[in-house]
Amino acid sequence: MTRLIAIAAGLVAIVGLGITYAMTMMQGEDDQFAQCRASNVAGGASQIGGAFTLVSETGETVTDKEVIDQPSLIYFGYTFCPDVCPLDNTRNAEAVDLLEDRGEMVKPVFISIDPKRDTPEVMAEYTDYVHPRLLGLTGSEEQVRAASKAYRTFFQAHQPTEGEEDFYLVDHSTMTYLSLPEHGFVEFFRRDVTAEQMADRVQCFLDAR
Protein backbone atom coordinates (compact mmCIF):
# COMPACT_ATOMS: atom_id res chain seq x y z
CA MET A 1 0.00 0.00 0.00
CA THR A 2 2.82 2.35 0.94
CA ARG A 3 4.52 1.54 -2.34
CA LEU A 4 1.35 2.36 -4.30
CA ILE A 5 1.02 5.70 -2.50
CA ALA A 6 4.65 6.52 -3.29
CA ILE A 7 4.16 5.64 -6.96
CA ALA A 8 1.00 7.74 -7.13
CA ALA A 9 2.76 10.68 -5.48
CA GLY A 10 5.59 10.34 -7.95
CA LEU A 11 3.18 10.39 -10.89
CA VAL A 12 1.49 13.50 -9.52
CA ALA A 13 4.85 15.21 -9.15
CA ILE A 14 5.84 14.28 -12.71
CA VAL A 15 2.53 15.54 -14.08
CA GLY A 16 2.91 18.72 -12.06
CA LEU A 17 6.41 19.29 -13.39
CA GLY A 18 5.12 18.64 -16.90
CA ILE A 19 2.38 21.23 -16.51
CA THR A 20 4.84 23.76 -15.05
CA TYR A 21 7.28 23.13 -17.89
CA ALA A 22 4.53 23.44 -20.48
CA MET A 23 3.32 26.70 -18.95
CA THR A 24 6.87 28.06 -18.87
CA MET A 25 7.41 27.10 -22.50
CA MET A 26 4.09 28.65 -23.51
CA GLN A 27 4.94 31.87 -21.70
CA GLY A 28 8.31 31.93 -23.45
CA GLU A 29 6.63 31.42 -26.81
CA ASP A 30 4.16 34.21 -26.09
CA ASP A 31 6.98 36.61 -25.19
CA GLN A 32 8.19 38.15 -28.42
CA PHE A 33 11.23 39.54 -26.59
CA ALA A 34 12.24 36.31 -24.85
CA GLN A 35 15.47 36.02 -26.83
CA CYS A 36 16.47 39.55 -25.82
CA ARG A 37 15.85 39.46 -22.07
CA ALA A 38 18.80 39.21 -19.72
CA SER A 39 16.84 40.02 -16.54
CA ASN A 40 13.87 38.63 -14.67
CA VAL A 41 11.12 40.66 -13.05
CA ALA A 42 9.00 39.00 -10.38
CA GLY A 43 5.46 38.91 -11.72
CA GLY A 44 6.57 39.86 -15.23
CA ALA A 45 7.52 43.06 -17.03
CA SER A 46 4.03 44.48 -16.56
CA GLN A 47 4.90 45.08 -12.89
CA ILE A 48 7.20 47.96 -13.89
CA GLY A 49 6.26 51.21 -15.60
CA GLY A 50 3.00 53.04 -15.91
CA ALA A 51 1.42 56.44 -16.00
CA PHE A 52 3.18 59.52 -14.66
CA THR A 53 2.98 63.28 -14.98
CA LEU A 54 6.14 65.37 -14.66
CA VAL A 55 7.59 68.74 -15.66
CA SER A 56 10.07 68.93 -18.51
CA GLU A 57 13.27 70.94 -18.51
CA THR A 58 11.43 73.55 -20.57
CA GLY A 59 8.77 73.95 -17.88
CA GLU A 60 5.99 72.06 -19.65
CA THR A 61 3.83 69.49 -17.92
CA VAL A 62 4.19 66.15 -19.72
CA THR A 63 2.75 62.67 -19.35
CA ASP A 64 4.38 59.27 -19.85
CA LYS A 65 2.70 59.01 -23.26
CA GLU A 66 4.37 62.23 -24.40
CA VAL A 67 7.74 61.27 -22.94
CA ILE A 68 7.84 57.70 -24.25
CA ASP A 69 6.84 58.52 -27.81
CA GLN A 70 9.79 56.51 -29.11
CA PRO A 71 12.05 53.84 -27.58
CA SER A 72 13.40 55.40 -24.39
CA LEU A 73 16.15 54.72 -21.87
CA ILE A 74 14.92 56.06 -18.52
CA TYR A 75 17.20 56.78 -15.56
CA PHE A 76 16.30 58.14 -12.11
CA GLY A 77 18.92 60.28 -10.37
CA TYR A 78 19.78 63.87 -9.50
CA THR A 79 22.09 66.59 -10.80
CA PHE A 80 24.00 67.03 -7.52
CA CYS A 81 24.97 63.35 -7.59
CA PRO A 82 28.78 63.40 -7.32
CA ASP A 83 29.79 60.35 -9.34
CA VAL A 84 27.19 57.63 -10.05
CA CYS A 85 24.65 59.66 -12.06
CA PRO A 86 27.19 61.38 -14.34
CA LEU A 87 28.74 58.02 -15.24
CA ASP A 88 25.40 56.31 -15.81
CA ASN A 89 23.93 59.15 -17.88
CA THR A 90 27.10 59.33 -19.95
CA ARG A 91 26.98 55.56 -20.55
CA ASN A 92 23.35 55.83 -21.62
CA ALA A 93 24.20 58.71 -23.95
CA GLU A 94 26.99 56.67 -25.52
CA ALA A 95 24.60 53.77 -26.10
CA VAL A 96 22.10 56.14 -27.73
CA ASP A 97 24.82 57.44 -30.06
CA LEU A 98 25.85 53.89 -31.00
CA LEU A 99 22.24 53.09 -31.84
CA GLU A 100 21.85 56.29 -33.84
CA ASP A 101 24.89 55.28 -35.90
CA ARG A 102 22.92 52.12 -36.74
CA GLY A 103 19.90 54.14 -37.78
CA GLU A 104 17.92 53.65 -34.55
CA MET A 105 16.61 56.66 -32.63
CA VAL A 106 16.35 56.02 -28.89
CA LYS A 107 15.50 58.79 -26.43
CA PRO A 108 17.61 59.18 -23.28
CA VAL A 109 15.52 60.36 -20.31
CA PHE A 110 16.75 61.61 -16.93
CA ILE A 111 14.13 61.86 -14.16
CA SER A 112 15.22 63.78 -11.07
CA ILE A 113 14.47 62.34 -7.64
CA ASP A 114 15.60 65.63 -6.05
CA PRO A 115 12.94 68.14 -7.16
CA LYS A 116 13.83 70.53 -4.35
CA ARG A 117 17.09 71.46 -6.08
CA ASP A 118 16.49 70.20 -9.60
CA THR A 119 14.34 72.91 -11.12
CA PRO A 120 13.62 72.82 -14.86
CA GLU A 121 16.41 75.35 -15.40
CA VAL A 122 18.93 73.23 -13.51
CA MET A 123 17.85 70.13 -15.42
CA ALA A 124 18.18 71.91 -18.76
CA GLU A 125 21.74 73.02 -18.00
CA TYR A 126 22.69 69.51 -16.88
CA THR A 127 21.15 67.63 -19.80
CA ASP A 128 22.56 70.02 -22.39
CA TYR A 129 26.01 69.24 -21.03
CA VAL A 130 25.54 65.45 -21.12
CA HIS A 131 23.79 64.97 -24.47
CA PRO A 132 21.82 67.26 -26.81
CA ARG A 133 18.86 64.85 -26.87
CA LEU A 134 18.82 63.95 -23.17
CA LEU A 135 15.39 64.90 -21.80
CA GLY A 136 15.37 66.11 -18.21
CA LEU A 137 12.23 65.73 -16.11
CA THR A 138 11.40 66.99 -12.63
CA GLY A 139 8.19 68.04 -10.89
CA SER A 140 6.60 68.28 -7.49
CA GLU A 141 7.62 65.83 -4.79
CA GLU A 142 4.32 64.00 -5.27
CA GLN A 143 4.81 63.73 -9.04
CA VAL A 144 8.36 62.47 -8.66
CA ARG A 145 7.37 59.89 -6.05
CA ALA A 146 4.55 58.65 -8.28
CA ALA A 147 6.92 58.17 -11.22
CA SER A 148 9.45 56.45 -8.96
CA LYS A 149 6.76 54.14 -7.61
CA ALA A 150 5.64 53.24 -11.13
CA TYR A 151 9.15 52.09 -12.01
CA ARG A 152 9.74 50.49 -8.60
CA THR A 153 12.76 52.67 -7.84
CA PHE A 154 14.06 53.77 -4.44
CA PHE A 155 15.40 57.09 -3.20
CA GLN A 156 16.04 58.62 0.20
CA ALA A 157 17.64 62.01 0.91
CA HIS A 158 20.21 62.32 3.66
CA GLN A 159 19.51 64.76 6.45
CA PRO A 160 21.51 67.93 5.66
CA THR A 161 23.81 69.37 8.28
CA GLU A 162 22.86 72.65 9.88
CA GLY A 163 24.01 75.62 7.82
CA GLU A 164 24.45 73.46 4.70
CA GLU A 165 20.85 72.72 3.85
CA ASP A 166 21.52 72.81 0.10
CA PHE A 167 24.34 70.27 0.29
CA TYR A 168 23.07 66.75 0.86
CA LEU A 169 23.27 63.40 -0.89
CA VAL A 170 20.40 61.20 -2.00
CA ASP A 171 20.57 57.41 -1.95
CA HIS A 172 18.82 55.95 -4.98
CA SER A 173 18.55 52.90 -7.19
CA THR A 174 20.64 52.97 -10.34
CA MET A 175 18.85 50.89 -12.95
CA THR A 176 18.21 52.16 -16.47
CA TYR A 177 14.85 51.16 -17.94
CA LEU A 178 14.04 50.50 -21.59
CA SER A 179 10.45 51.39 -22.46
CA LEU A 180 8.80 51.12 -25.87
CA PRO A 181 5.74 53.20 -26.84
CA GLU A 182 3.69 50.21 -27.92
CA HIS A 183 4.82 47.82 -25.17
CA GLY A 184 5.81 49.86 -22.12
CA PHE A 185 8.70 48.65 -19.96
CA VAL A 186 10.58 45.70 -21.45
CA GLU A 187 14.02 45.56 -19.83
CA PHE A 188 16.34 47.08 -17.24
CA PHE A 189 20.11 47.51 -17.28
CA ARG A 190 22.48 47.41 -14.32
CA ARG A 191 25.45 49.71 -13.86
CA ASP A 192 27.98 47.10 -14.96
CA VAL A 193 26.52 46.94 -18.48
CA THR A 194 28.73 48.78 -20.97
CA ALA A 195 27.43 51.20 -23.62
CA GLU A 196 28.17 48.62 -26.31
CA GLN A 197 26.35 45.86 -24.45
CA MET A 198 23.40 48.15 -23.81
CA ALA A 199 23.20 49.16 -27.46
CA ASP A 200 23.27 45.53 -28.59
CA ARG A 201 20.52 44.49 -26.18
CA VAL A 202 18.35 47.48 -27.06
CA GLN A 203 18.86 46.64 -30.75
CA CYS A 204 17.54 43.13 -30.09
CA PHE A 205 14.32 44.55 -28.63
CA LEU A 206 13.92 46.98 -31.51
CA ASP A 207 14.39 44.22 -34.07
CA ALA A 208 11.87 41.98 -32.29
CA ARG A 209 9.02 44.52 -32.33
Results as ranks from 00 to 15, higher is better:
C204F: 03
D114S: 04
V202A: 03
F76W: 02
A147Y: 02
I19L: 03
M175S: 04
G49A: 02
A22Y: 15
F154R: 08
I14Q: 00
L178F: 00
Q159R: 14
R191D: 09
L98H: 08
T2F: 15
V106G: 02
M105E: 14
R133V: 06
V202E: 05
S173V: 00
E60D: 15
S72Q: 09
C81D: 11
L135M: 11
M175W: 13
I14E: 01
A146I: 01
L169E: 12
S72C: 06
Q143E: 11
S140H: 11
D30K: 12
Y21P: 12
V109K: 05
F185V: 06
Q27N: 13
G50F: 05
T2Y: 15
D114R: 05
F33P: 13
V84D: 08
R117A: 00
V15Q: 03
R102G: 03
L4G: 04
Q156E: 13
V130G: 06
S56T: 13
E165T: 13
D207Q: 10
S112L: 03
D64R: 10
R37H: 14
G44S: 01
E162N: 07
H158T: 14
S72V: 06
Y126H: 01
G136Q: 02
R102A: 14
R37D: 03
R3T: 10
E142M: 14
P108A: 09
P108E: 05
Q47T: 10
C85S: 06
T138H: 05
F189M: 01
I7S: 03
T161W: 12
V144M: 08
K116V: 14
R91S: 10
S56G: 08
A34T: 13
A51W: 04
K107T: 11
I111H: 07
T153V: 03
L206H: 03
P82E: 08
M105P: 04
G59R: 10
L98M: 10
Q159V: 13
P82D: 04
V15D: 06
Y168W: 09
A124L: 11
Q35F: 14
V202F: 06
L99C: 01
M26A: 07
T127Y: 02
G184T: 10
T61V: 15
P181D: 06
A195H: 07
P82C: 06
M175Q: 11
S179N: 07
Q143V: 06
A45N: 14
V12T: 07
G16F: 11
I19S: 13
M123W: 01
D114Y: 01
Y75G: 00
E121I: 04
L87R: 12
L135G: 02
S140Q: 01
D171E: 09
A34C: 09
G44H: 08
L99I: 03
E94C: 12
T53M: 08
L134G: 00
A199P: 02
Y177V: 09
T2S: 15
A42Y: 09
T127I: 05
N40K: 12
T63L: 05
L169Q: 12
L4I: 10
D192L: 14
L4P: 06
V144F: 05
K149E: 05
K116F: 08
E164Q: 15
F205D: 07
M175T: 04
D101S: 10
G59D: 03
I111D: 04
